[in-house]
Nucleic acid binder design. Structure first.
Length: 120
RNA sequence: CAAGCUGGCUGGGCGAUCGCGCUCUGGCGCUGCCAGAGUGAGGAAAGUCCGCGCUCCAUAGAGCACGAUGCUGGCUAACGGCCAGGCGGGGCGACCCGACGGAAUAGUGCAACAGAGAGGUAUAUUGCCGAUCCUCUUAUGGUGGAUUGGUGAGGGUGAAACGGUGUGGUAAGAGCACACCGGCGACUCUGGUAACAGAGCCGGCCAGGUAAACCCCUUCGGGAGCAAGGCCAAGCAGGGAUGAGGUGCUGCUCGUACCGAUUGAGUCCCGGGUAGGCUGCUUGAGAUGGGCGGUAACGCCUUUCCUAGAGAGAUGAUUGCCCAGGGGUCUGUAUGGGCUCCGGACAGAACGCGGCUUAUAGGCCGGCUUGGGUG
RNA sequence: UGGGGAGUGGCCAAGUGGUAAGGCACUGGCCUUUGGAGCCAGGUACCGAAGGUUCGAAUCCUUCCUCCCCAG
Protein backbone atom coordinates (compact mmCIF):
# COMPACT_ATOMS: atom_id res chain seq x y z
CA UNK A 1 0.00 0.00 0.00
CA UNK A 2 0.89 3.59 -0.40
CA UNK A 3 0.81 6.24 2.30
CA UNK A 4 -1.91 8.77 1.65
CA UNK A 5 0.16 11.66 0.30
CA UNK A 6 1.43 9.44 -2.52
CA UNK A 7 -2.12 8.95 -3.83
CA UNK A 8 -4.09 11.06 -6.26
CA UNK A 9 -7.23 12.24 -4.53
CA UNK A 10 -9.04 14.76 -6.70
CA UNK A 11 -11.03 14.49 -9.85
CA UNK A 12 -9.17 17.31 -11.62
CA UNK A 13 -5.84 15.53 -11.07
CA UNK A 14 -7.20 12.49 -12.88
CA UNK A 15 -8.62 14.64 -15.66
CA UNK A 16 -5.38 16.55 -16.11
CA UNK A 17 -3.36 13.38 -16.38
CA UNK A 18 -5.72 11.76 -18.82
CA UNK A 19 -6.32 14.76 -21.05
CA UNK A 20 -2.97 16.60 -21.08
CA UNK A 21 -0.54 13.88 -20.03
CA UNK A 22 1.36 11.28 -21.98
CA UNK A 23 0.01 7.79 -22.45
CA UNK A 24 1.41 4.26 -22.77
CA UNK A 25 -0.72 1.17 -22.99
CA UNK A 26 -0.77 -2.59 -22.87
CA UNK A 27 -3.42 -5.31 -23.10
CA UNK A 28 -3.88 -5.19 -19.31
CA UNK A 29 -3.21 -1.56 -18.40
CA UNK A 30 -3.07 2.03 -19.59
CA UNK A 31 -0.49 4.36 -18.00
CA UNK A 32 -0.92 8.15 -18.02
CA UNK A 33 1.68 10.55 -16.66
CA UNK A 34 1.92 14.31 -16.22
CA UNK A 35 4.50 16.50 -14.49
CA UNK A 36 3.10 17.80 -11.23
CA UNK A 37 5.92 19.98 -9.86
CA UNK A 38 5.76 18.22 -6.49
CA UNK A 39 8.85 16.79 -4.80
CA UNK A 40 7.36 13.27 -4.94
CA UNK A 41 5.24 11.10 -7.19
CA UNK A 42 1.52 10.47 -6.84
CA UNK A 43 -0.39 7.46 -8.07
CA UNK A 44 -4.03 7.07 -9.00
CA UNK A 45 -5.86 3.95 -10.07
CA UNK A 46 -8.99 3.59 -12.18
CA UNK A 47 -10.75 0.22 -12.13
CA UNK A 48 -14.12 0.32 -13.82
CA UNK A 49 -17.06 -2.00 -13.43
CA UNK A 50 -16.15 -3.71 -16.67
CA UNK A 51 -13.28 -5.39 -14.80
CA UNK A 52 -15.55 -7.31 -12.45
CA UNK A 53 -17.62 -7.15 -9.31
CA UNK A 54 -16.56 -5.29 -6.19
CA UNK A 55 -14.39 -8.07 -4.76
CA UNK A 56 -12.46 -8.45 -8.00
CA UNK A 57 -12.01 -4.70 -8.44
CA UNK A 58 -10.71 -4.29 -4.91
CA UNK A 59 -8.23 -7.11 -5.45
CA UNK A 60 -6.96 -5.50 -8.66
CA UNK A 61 -6.57 -2.13 -6.95
CA UNK A 62 -4.68 -3.65 -4.04
CA UNK A 63 -2.33 -5.44 -6.38
CA UNK A 64 -1.71 -2.30 -8.41
CA UNK A 65 -0.96 -0.36 -5.26
CA UNK A 66 1.43 -3.07 -4.12
CA UNK A 67 3.39 -2.90 -7.36
CA UNK A 68 3.39 0.90 -7.32
CA UNK A 69 4.81 0.89 -3.81
CA UNK A 70 7.55 -1.56 -4.71
CA UNK A 71 8.65 0.60 -7.66
CA UNK A 72 8.36 3.95 -5.86
CA UNK A 73 12.03 4.25 -4.74
CA UNK A 74 13.30 3.72 -8.27
CA UNK A 75 11.25 6.43 -10.04
CA UNK A 76 12.11 9.93 -11.20
CA UNK A 77 10.14 12.24 -8.93
CA UNK A 78 7.65 14.96 -9.77
CA UNK A 79 5.02 13.07 -11.74
CA UNK A 80 1.37 12.15 -11.32
CA UNK A 81 0.82 8.63 -12.62
CA UNK A 82 -2.66 7.27 -13.39
CA UNK A 83 -2.99 3.57 -14.05
CA UNK A 84 -6.22 2.43 -15.71
CA UNK A 85 -7.12 -1.24 -15.57
CA UNK A 86 -8.60 -2.93 -18.63
CA UNK A 87 -11.00 -5.90 -18.40
CA UNK A 88 -8.35 -8.52 -19.24
CA UNK A 89 -6.57 -7.78 -15.97
CA UNK A 90 -9.13 -9.71 -13.94
CA UNK A 91 -7.61 -12.97 -15.22
CA UNK A 92 -3.98 -11.90 -14.64
CA UNK A 93 -1.74 -12.99 -11.77
CA UNK A 94 0.23 -10.61 -9.61
CA UNK A 95 3.43 -11.49 -11.50
CA UNK A 96 1.77 -10.59 -14.81
CA UNK A 97 0.64 -7.24 -13.46
CA UNK A 98 4.03 -6.41 -12.01
CA UNK A 99 5.77 -7.24 -15.31
CA UNK A 100 3.41 -5.03 -17.26
CA UNK A 101 3.81 -2.14 -14.83
CA UNK A 102 7.57 -2.43 -15.11
CA UNK A 103 7.38 -2.48 -18.90
CA UNK A 104 5.20 0.60 -19.05
CA UNK A 105 7.34 2.52 -16.54
CA UNK A 106 10.43 1.76 -18.63
CA UNK A 107 8.66 2.91 -21.81
CA UNK A 108 7.60 6.09 -20.07
CA UNK A 109 11.21 6.75 -19.05
CA UNK A 110 10.31 7.22 -15.42
CA UNK A 111 13.07 5.02 -13.95
CA UNK A 112 16.03 6.76 -12.43
CA UNK A 113 18.94 6.19 -14.89
CA UNK A 114 21.32 4.58 -12.38
CA UNK A 115 18.58 2.10 -11.44
CA UNK A 116 17.46 1.14 -14.91
CA UNK A 117 18.49 -2.46 -14.34
CA UNK A 118 17.15 -2.63 -10.82
CA UNK A 119 14.37 -4.84 -9.61
CA UNK A 120 12.42 -4.18 -6.45
C1' C B 1 -27.18 -51.50 3.68
C1' A B 2 -29.78 -48.57 -0.08
C1' A B 3 -32.98 -44.63 -1.44
C1' G B 4 -35.03 -40.35 0.59
C1' C B 5 -37.17 -36.32 3.93
C1' U B 6 -35.92 -32.65 7.48
C1' G B 7 -33.53 -29.23 11.47
C1' G B 8 -29.07 -26.82 12.76
C1' C B 9 -23.71 -25.46 12.71
C1' U B 10 -19.36 -24.16 9.85
C1' G B 11 -17.35 -21.18 5.66
C1' G B 12 -9.82 -23.42 5.86
C1' G B 13 -5.85 -23.44 10.36
C1' C B 14 -0.85 -21.99 12.44
C1' G B 15 3.46 -19.11 11.06
C1' A B 16 7.75 -15.92 8.58
C1' U B 17 9.35 -11.25 5.76
C1' C B 18 7.74 -6.56 3.46
C1' G B 19 3.31 -3.10 3.70
C1' C B 20 -2.07 -0.26 4.79
C1' G B 21 -6.61 2.23 7.83
C1' C B 22 -8.13 3.53 12.78
C1' U B 23 -7.37 4.08 18.24
C1' C B 24 -4.10 4.71 22.41
C1' U B 25 0.84 5.88 24.48
C1' G B 26 5.62 8.22 23.85
C1' G B 27 9.04 11.38 21.06
C1' C B 28 10.19 15.35 17.43
C1' G B 29 12.13 20.11 13.70
C1' C B 30 4.07 19.23 15.58
C1' U B 31 -1.94 21.04 9.29
C1' G B 32 2.55 16.29 9.96
C1' C B 33 6.42 12.53 10.73
C1' C B 34 8.73 8.48 13.64
C1' A B 35 8.47 4.34 17.30
C1' G B 36 5.61 0.84 20.17
C1' A B 37 1.02 -1.60 21.50
C1' G B 38 -3.97 -2.88 20.29
C1' U B 39 -7.53 -3.62 16.56
C1' G B 40 -9.41 -4.33 11.49
C1' A B 41 -15.39 -7.43 6.55
C1' G B 42 -20.03 -11.44 5.82
C1' G B 43 -23.52 -15.43 6.21
C1' A B 44 -25.06 -13.55 2.83
C1' A B 45 -21.46 -7.42 3.96
C1' A B 46 -24.88 -8.63 -2.37
C1' G B 47 -29.87 -7.46 -4.75
C1' U B 48 -32.41 -3.01 -2.75
C1' C B 49 -37.97 -6.33 -2.41
C1' C B 50 -40.48 -4.96 2.46
C1' G B 51 -40.47 -2.97 7.64
C1' C B 52 -38.37 0.19 11.65
C1' G B 53 -35.06 3.49 14.36
C1' C B 54 -32.66 8.27 13.53
C1' U B 55 -32.74 13.47 11.18
C1' C B 56 -35.29 17.62 8.84
C1' C B 57 -39.91 19.40 7.07
C1' A B 58 -45.60 22.08 11.63
C1' U B 59 -47.29 18.72 17.01
C1' A B 60 -47.34 15.14 11.88
C1' G B 61 -53.79 17.69 10.55
C1' A B 62 -58.95 16.05 7.92
C1' G B 63 -61.44 13.99 3.49
C1' C B 64 -60.93 11.98 -1.40
C1' A B 65 -57.66 9.90 -4.75
C1' C B 66 -53.54 6.53 -4.96
C1' G B 67 -50.62 2.43 -3.22
C1' A B 68 -50.17 -1.88 -0.34
C1' U B 69 -52.34 -6.06 2.64
C1' G B 70 -55.66 -10.51 2.33
C1' C B 71 -58.02 -18.07 6.16
C1' U B 72 -57.62 -17.81 11.98
C1' G B 73 -54.95 -16.86 16.50
C1' G B 74 -50.38 -15.28 18.42
C1' C B 75 -45.10 -12.95 18.35
C1' U B 76 -42.75 -8.27 17.33
C1' A B 77 -40.49 -1.58 17.54
C1' A B 78 -42.71 -2.86 12.86
C1' C B 79 -43.41 -5.88 8.57
C1' G B 80 -45.53 -8.21 2.75
C1' G B 81 -41.55 -11.52 8.27
C1' C B 82 -41.83 -15.57 11.94
C1' C B 83 -44.59 -19.37 15.06
C1' A B 84 -48.92 -22.40 15.92
C1' G B 85 -53.54 -23.99 14.03
C1' G B 86 -57.46 -24.60 10.07
C1' C B 87 -58.73 -25.64 4.95
C1' G B 88 -57.18 -27.23 -0.09
C1' G B 89 -53.52 -29.92 -3.20
C1' G B 90 -49.21 -33.54 -3.95
C1' G B 91 -46.40 -37.90 -2.09
C1' C B 92 -46.68 -45.30 -0.06
C1' G B 93 -44.39 -42.32 3.78
C1' A B 94 -41.04 -38.91 6.57
C1' C B 95 -42.76 -34.47 4.63
C1' C B 96 -43.65 -30.63 1.00
C1' C B 97 -46.56 -26.71 -1.60
C1' G B 98 -50.60 -22.82 -1.53
C1' A B 99 -51.73 -14.18 -3.36
C1' C B 100 -56.24 -19.02 0.78
C1' G B 101 -61.67 -12.44 1.84
C1' G B 102 -66.19 -11.56 -1.53
C1' A B 103 -69.15 -14.64 -7.88
C1' A B 104 -77.41 -17.48 -4.56
C1' U B 105 -76.78 -11.09 -5.21
C1' A B 106 -73.81 -4.37 -4.79
C1' G B 107 -73.00 -3.93 -9.69
C1' U B 108 -70.12 -4.10 -14.53
C1' G B 109 -67.00 -6.57 -17.97
C1' C B 110 -64.49 -10.81 -20.63
C1' A B 111 -64.46 -15.98 -23.20
C1' A B 112 -60.68 -16.26 -29.95
C1' C B 113 -61.70 -20.72 -33.00
C1' A B 114 -65.27 -24.54 -33.10
C1' G B 115 -70.40 -25.14 -32.09
C1' A B 116 -77.52 -25.00 -32.94
C1' G B 117 -76.54 -22.54 -28.44
C1' A B 118 -71.36 -19.35 -24.06
C1' G B 119 -74.79 -17.14 -19.30
C1' G B 120 -80.44 -15.25 -20.96
C1' U B 121 -86.19 -17.92 -16.65
C1' A B 122 -80.16 -19.96 -23.24
C1' U B 123 -80.51 -23.00 -27.89
C1' A B 124 -82.89 -26.62 -31.86
C1' U B 125 -78.09 -28.99 -36.49
C1' U B 126 -78.64 -34.29 -36.38
C1' G B 127 -82.10 -37.09 -33.40
C1' C B 128 -86.89 -38.69 -30.74
C1' C B 129 -92.37 -37.86 -30.60
C1' G B 130 -97.39 -35.88 -31.92
C1' A B 131 -100.85 -33.23 -35.40
C1' U B 132 -102.30 -31.70 -40.52
C1' C B 133 -101.59 -32.28 -45.83
C1' C B 134 -99.44 -34.89 -50.09
C1' U B 135 -97.17 -39.48 -52.37
C1' C B 136 -96.49 -44.79 -52.81
C1' U B 137 -98.06 -49.42 -50.88
C1' U B 138 -98.85 -55.63 -49.25
C1' A B 139 -104.17 -50.41 -46.62
C1' U B 140 -107.67 -48.93 -38.84
C1' G B 141 -101.01 -50.35 -40.50
C1' G B 142 -96.37 -48.92 -42.93
C1' U B 143 -92.56 -45.94 -46.42
C1' G B 144 -91.02 -41.10 -48.14
C1' G B 145 -91.77 -35.69 -48.22
C1' A B 146 -93.65 -30.75 -46.60
C1' U B 147 -95.63 -27.54 -42.72
C1' U B 148 -96.26 -26.88 -37.64
C1' G B 149 -95.73 -28.04 -32.49
C1' G B 150 -93.41 -30.70 -28.18
C1' U B 151 -88.53 -32.27 -26.25
C1' G B 152 -83.33 -31.64 -23.90
C1' A B 153 -82.99 -37.88 -22.56
C1' G B 154 -78.94 -39.99 -27.39
C1' G B 155 -74.96 -38.14 -31.05
C1' G B 156 -71.75 -34.00 -32.21
C1' U B 157 -68.59 -28.98 -30.90
C1' G B 158 -65.71 -26.94 -27.10
C1' A B 159 -61.34 -25.45 -21.82
C1' A B 160 -66.36 -24.96 -20.15
C1' A B 161 -73.17 -26.92 -22.40
C1' C B 162 -77.40 -25.90 -16.12
C1' G B 163 -76.03 -32.61 -11.06
C1' G B 164 -75.56 -38.71 -10.78
C1' U B 165 -78.25 -43.59 -10.28
C1' G B 166 -82.97 -45.86 -10.05
C1' U B 167 -88.34 -45.92 -10.15
C1' G B 168 -92.75 -43.62 -11.54
C1' G B 169 -94.56 -40.68 -15.38
C1' U B 170 -95.24 -39.46 -20.81
C1' A B 171 -96.90 -39.24 -27.55
C1' A B 172 -91.67 -38.74 -26.75
C1' G B 173 -89.27 -36.68 -22.76
C1' A B 174 -87.50 -33.65 -18.81
C1' G B 175 -86.22 -32.53 -10.98
C1' C B 176 -92.05 -33.21 -13.97
C1' A B 177 -92.63 -36.27 -9.14
C1' C B 178 -90.27 -39.48 -5.52
C1' A B 179 -86.01 -42.30 -3.02
C1' C B 180 -80.77 -42.44 -2.27
C1' C B 181 -76.05 -40.03 -3.33
C1' G B 182 -73.10 -35.49 -4.50
C1' G B 183 -73.04 -30.29 -4.06
C1' C B 184 -75.19 -25.42 -2.05
C1' G B 185 -77.59 -22.48 1.71
C1' A B 186 -80.35 -21.31 6.47
C1' C B 187 -81.11 -22.81 11.52
C1' U B 188 -80.01 -25.74 16.11
C1' C B 189 -76.60 -28.52 19.16
C1' U B 190 -71.47 -30.15 20.44
C1' G B 191 -65.92 -29.13 20.42
C1' G B 192 -62.62 -24.91 19.65
C1' U B 193 -60.40 -17.90 21.59
C1' A B 194 -61.10 -18.28 16.25
C1' A B 195 -60.55 -20.07 11.26
C1' C B 196 -63.17 -24.51 11.15
C1' A B 197 -64.89 -29.52 12.18
C1' G B 198 -68.78 -33.15 13.55
C1' A B 199 -74.05 -34.26 14.18
C1' G B 200 -79.22 -33.12 13.43
C1' C B 201 -83.08 -30.77 10.79
C1' C B 202 -85.16 -27.88 6.88
C1' G B 203 -85.10 -25.59 2.00
C1' G B 204 -85.10 -24.99 -3.19
C1' C B 205 -83.91 -28.94 -7.07
C1' C B 206 -78.43 -27.04 -8.80
C1' A B 207 -77.31 -21.25 -8.62
C1' G B 208 -70.99 -22.23 -14.47
C1' G B 209 -65.66 -19.91 -14.93
C1' U B 210 -62.69 -15.55 -14.35
C1' A B 211 -61.63 -10.70 -9.01
C1' A B 212 -52.58 -12.02 -10.33
C1' A B 213 -60.39 -8.00 -14.95
C1' C B 214 -62.83 -3.35 -13.03
C1' C B 215 -64.80 -3.43 -8.37
C1' C B 216 -66.71 -4.22 -2.97
C1' C B 217 -64.98 -5.26 1.93
C1' U B 218 -60.86 -5.67 5.91
C1' U B 219 -56.38 -3.58 7.89
C1' C B 220 -52.34 -0.16 7.03
C1' G B 221 -49.66 4.04 4.80
C1' G B 222 -47.96 12.41 5.71
C1' G B 223 -43.19 13.68 2.67
C1' A B 224 -38.10 13.24 2.05
C1' G B 225 -33.64 10.94 3.00
C1' C B 226 -26.82 10.38 6.58
C1' A B 227 -25.10 13.54 -0.30
C1' A B 228 -30.69 13.52 6.03
C1' G B 229 -29.21 17.17 9.43
C1' G B 230 -25.73 20.42 12.58
C1' C B 231 -21.14 23.51 13.04
C1' C B 232 -16.72 26.06 11.25
C1' A B 233 -13.54 28.13 7.49
C1' A B 234 -12.83 30.34 2.58
C1' G B 235 -14.82 33.21 -1.53
C1' C B 236 -17.99 36.61 -4.73
C1' A B 237 -20.95 41.37 -7.97
C1' G B 238 -24.39 42.31 -9.41
C1' G B 239 -27.70 43.34 -13.68
C1' G B 240 -32.21 42.60 -16.77
C1' A B 241 -37.29 40.76 -17.72
C1' U B 242 -41.80 39.22 -15.53
C1' G B 243 -44.70 39.70 -11.35
C1' A B 244 -49.40 38.71 -7.01
C1' G B 245 -49.19 35.17 -5.12
C1' G B 246 -45.48 31.56 -3.27
C1' U B 247 -43.63 27.67 0.14
C1' G B 248 -43.98 23.74 3.94
C1' C B 249 -47.15 19.29 1.24
C1' U B 250 -46.23 14.00 -5.42
C1' G B 251 -52.43 14.88 -7.17
C1' C B 252 -57.37 17.43 -5.74
C1' U B 253 -60.49 19.90 -1.80
C1' C B 254 -60.06 21.96 3.00
C1' G B 255 -57.28 23.48 7.14
C1' U B 256 -52.96 25.67 9.16
C1' A B 257 -47.91 28.07 9.62
C1' C B 258 -44.36 31.21 7.35
C1' C B 259 -42.77 34.74 3.45
C1' G B 260 -44.70 38.68 0.17
C1' A B 261 -47.45 42.83 -3.14
C1' U B 262 -43.03 49.07 -5.91
C1' U B 263 -38.92 48.88 0.94
C1' G B 264 -40.99 43.35 -4.89
C1' A B 265 -42.10 36.83 -2.56
C1' G B 266 -41.49 33.67 -6.57
C1' U B 267 -40.18 32.44 -11.82
C1' C B 268 -36.95 33.08 -16.23
C1' C B 269 -32.29 35.03 -18.57
C1' C B 270 -27.11 36.96 -18.33
C1' G B 271 -22.91 37.28 -15.10
C1' G B 272 -19.96 35.95 -10.56
C1' G B 273 -18.43 32.57 -6.39
C1' U B 274 -17.86 27.56 -4.33
C1' A B 275 -15.09 21.46 -4.97
C1' G B 276 -11.96 22.51 2.41
C1' G B 277 -12.52 20.65 7.47
C1' C B 278 -15.21 18.88 11.95
C1' U B 279 -19.61 16.36 13.39
C1' G B 280 -23.63 12.91 12.58
C1' C B 281 -20.33 7.66 13.21
C1' U B 282 -21.25 3.54 15.88
C1' U B 283 -23.37 1.12 23.12
C1' G B 284 -27.08 -1.28 20.16
C1' A B 285 -34.83 -3.66 19.40
C1' G B 286 -26.24 -5.55 20.95
C1' A B 287 -23.40 -10.35 21.90
C1' U B 288 -22.28 -14.63 25.30
C1' G B 289 -23.49 -18.03 29.45
C1' G B 290 -27.35 -19.39 33.06
C1' G B 291 -32.41 -19.50 35.09
C1' C B 292 -37.79 -18.97 34.57
C1' G B 293 -42.59 -18.65 31.52
C1' G B 294 -44.65 -20.27 26.74
C1' U B 295 -46.37 -26.23 22.20
C1' A B 296 -43.51 -22.47 19.45
C1' A B 297 -42.14 -17.71 17.37
C1' C B 298 -40.77 -15.01 21.57
C1' G B 299 -40.68 -12.66 26.40
C1' C B 300 -38.72 -11.66 31.49
C1' C B 301 -34.60 -11.81 35.11
C1' U B 302 -29.44 -12.15 35.64
C1' U B 303 -23.71 -12.87 34.67
C1' U B 304 -19.79 -11.37 31.72
C1' C B 305 -18.03 -8.64 27.32
C1' C B 306 -17.21 -3.97 24.06
C1' U B 307 -16.34 -6.41 18.80
C1' A B 308 -14.32 -2.15 11.74
C1' G B 309 -15.55 2.97 11.20
C1' A B 310 -12.80 4.15 5.53
C1' G B 311 -13.60 8.78 2.47
C1' A B 312 -10.17 7.93 -5.15
C1' G B 313 -12.41 4.71 -0.09
C1' A B 314 -8.01 0.55 4.73
C1' U B 315 -7.03 -6.96 4.77
C1' G B 316 -2.38 -6.99 -0.09
C1' A B 317 2.59 -9.26 -2.05
C1' U B 318 6.10 -13.41 -1.49
C1' U B 319 6.43 -18.01 1.11
C1' G B 320 6.63 -22.72 4.78
C1' C B 321 3.89 -26.62 7.23
C1' C B 322 -0.83 -28.74 8.18
C1' C B 323 -6.21 -29.73 6.75
C1' A B 324 -9.85 -30.84 3.06
C1' G B 325 -10.70 -31.75 -2.63
C1' G B 326 -9.80 -33.39 -7.87
C1' G B 327 -6.87 -35.66 -12.02
C1' G B 328 -2.86 -38.90 -13.87
C1' U B 329 0.46 -42.96 -13.10
C1' C B 330 2.85 -47.25 -10.58
C1' U B 331 2.12 -51.14 -7.15
C1' G B 332 -1.34 -54.15 -4.93
C1' U B 333 -5.91 -56.03 -3.38
C1' A B 334 -8.80 -55.82 2.44
C1' U B 335 -10.86 -50.88 2.98
C1' G B 336 -5.14 -49.45 0.66
C1' G B 337 0.06 -47.49 -0.27
C1' G B 338 3.88 -44.55 -3.18
C1' C B 339 5.06 -40.61 -6.79
C1' U B 340 3.49 -36.34 -9.38
C1' C B 341 0.37 -32.27 -11.15
C1' C B 342 -3.71 -29.00 -10.32
C1' G B 343 -5.77 -26.32 -6.53
C1' G B 344 -9.21 -23.46 -1.98
C1' A B 345 -17.08 -21.72 -2.96
C1' C B 346 -19.99 -17.30 -3.27
C1' A B 347 -18.33 -12.85 -2.32
C1' G B 348 -15.93 -6.71 0.25
C1' A B 349 -18.88 -2.84 5.50
C1' A B 350 -19.97 3.02 3.97
C1' C B 351 -25.85 5.74 9.30
C1' G B 352 -27.63 1.44 12.09
C1' C B 353 -31.02 -2.57 12.79
C1' G B 354 -35.33 -6.74 11.80
C1' G B 355 -36.70 -9.78 7.70
C1' C B 356 -37.18 -11.54 2.53
C1' U B 357 -34.81 -12.95 -2.04
C1' U B 358 -30.67 -14.51 -4.74
C1' A B 359 -25.26 -16.74 -5.02
C1' U B 360 -22.34 -20.54 -2.54
C1' A B 361 -16.54 -25.47 -3.11
C1' G B 362 -16.92 -28.40 0.61
C1' G B 363 -17.12 -30.18 5.86
C1' C B 364 -19.65 -31.45 10.70
C1' C B 365 -23.79 -32.78 14.17
C1' G B 366 -28.81 -34.43 15.07
C1' G B 367 -34.12 -36.27 14.08
C1' C B 368 -37.30 -39.13 10.91
C1' U B 369 -39.50 -42.24 6.57
C1' U B 370 -39.66 -46.29 3.00
C1' G B 371 -37.54 -50.85 1.16
C1' G B 372 -34.15 -55.00 1.74
C1' G B 373 -30.79 -58.24 4.69
C1' U B 374 -29.16 -60.54 9.37
C1' G B 375 -29.92 -61.83 14.59
C1' U C 1 -29.43 6.58 -2.01
C1' G C 2 -33.84 7.56 -4.58
C1' G C 3 -36.55 7.52 -9.22
C1' G C 4 -37.68 6.09 -14.41
C1' G C 5 -37.31 2.98 -18.79
C1' A C 6 -35.98 -1.13 -22.12
C1' G C 7 -35.17 -6.55 -23.45
C1' U C 8 -39.70 -9.70 -29.58
C1' G C 9 -35.81 -13.71 -36.24
C1' G C 10 -28.86 -11.64 -37.88
C1' C C 11 -30.40 -5.90 -37.33
C1' C C 12 -34.49 -2.08 -36.68
C1' A C 13 -39.01 -2.85 -34.73
C1' A C 14 -45.32 -3.29 -34.36
C1' G C 15 -48.37 -6.05 -31.28
C1' U C 16 -50.59 -4.88 -24.30
C1' G C 17 -55.40 -11.68 -22.93
C1' G C 18 -57.16 -15.45 -28.54
C1' U C 19 -53.11 -18.02 -35.26
C1' A C 20 -46.47 -13.00 -33.42
C1' A C 21 -47.32 -7.50 -38.49
C1' G C 22 -43.73 -4.81 -41.42
C1' G C 23 -38.84 -3.17 -43.20
C1' C C 24 -33.51 -4.13 -43.90
C1' A C 25 -30.43 -8.28 -44.38
C1' C C 26 -30.26 -13.69 -46.07
C1' U C 27 -31.50 -18.00 -49.60
C1' G C 28 -33.52 -19.70 -54.43
C1' G C 29 -35.56 -18.42 -59.27
C1' C C 30 -36.64 -14.83 -63.50
C1' C C 31 -34.33 -10.78 -66.18
C1' U C 32 -28.90 -9.35 -67.78
C1' U C 33 -22.79 -10.95 -71.30
C1' U C 34 -21.76 -10.29 -65.78
C1' G C 35 -22.86 -7.42 -61.37
C1' G C 36 -26.31 -3.86 -59.38
C1' A C 37 -31.39 -2.36 -59.61
C1' G C 38 -36.23 -4.56 -60.51
C1' C C 39 -39.92 -8.78 -60.26
C1' C C 40 -41.49 -13.62 -57.96
C1' A C 41 -41.05 -17.18 -54.06
C1' G C 42 -39.04 -18.90 -49.35
C1' G C 43 -36.65 -19.72 -44.46
C1' U C 44 -35.58 -17.58 -39.80
C1' A C 45 -39.13 -16.01 -33.07
C1' C C 46 -41.86 -21.30 -27.71
C1' C C 47 -41.15 -12.89 -27.30
C1' G C 48 -34.30 -11.87 -21.42
C1' A C 49 -34.85 -16.48 -17.46
C1' A C 50 -37.82 -19.32 -13.99
C1' G C 51 -42.40 -20.07 -11.59
C1' G C 52 -47.63 -18.90 -11.10
C1' U C 53 -52.99 -17.02 -12.48
C1' U C 54 -56.29 -18.32 -16.85
C1' C C 55 -59.53 -22.87 -21.12
C1' G C 56 -55.61 -19.87 -23.31
C1' A C 57 -49.88 -15.35 -21.48
C1' A C 58 -45.15 -11.63 -25.58
C1' U C 59 -49.35 -9.26 -22.89
C1' C C 60 -51.54 -10.16 -15.98
C1' C C 61 -48.66 -11.37 -11.12
C1' U C 62 -44.00 -12.79 -8.33
C1' U C 63 -38.73 -13.54 -8.18
C1' C C 64 -34.21 -13.15 -10.79
C1' C C 65 -30.66 -11.51 -15.01
C1' U C 66 -28.71 -7.81 -18.46
C1' C C 67 -28.55 -2.88 -20.34
C1' C C 68 -29.70 2.40 -20.49
C1' C C 69 -31.21 7.16 -18.44
C1' C C 70 -32.23 10.99 -14.54
C1' A C 71 -31.51 13.72 -9.49
C1' G C 72 -28.33 15.14 -5.53
Amino acid sequence: MLPRHFRLRHHEDFDASRQRGKRWHDKLLILNTISSGLPHNRFGFVVSRRVGKATRRNLVKRRLRATARSWLPYLITGYDIVIIARPAISEASYQDIEAVVEKLLRQAGLLVPRDVDATP
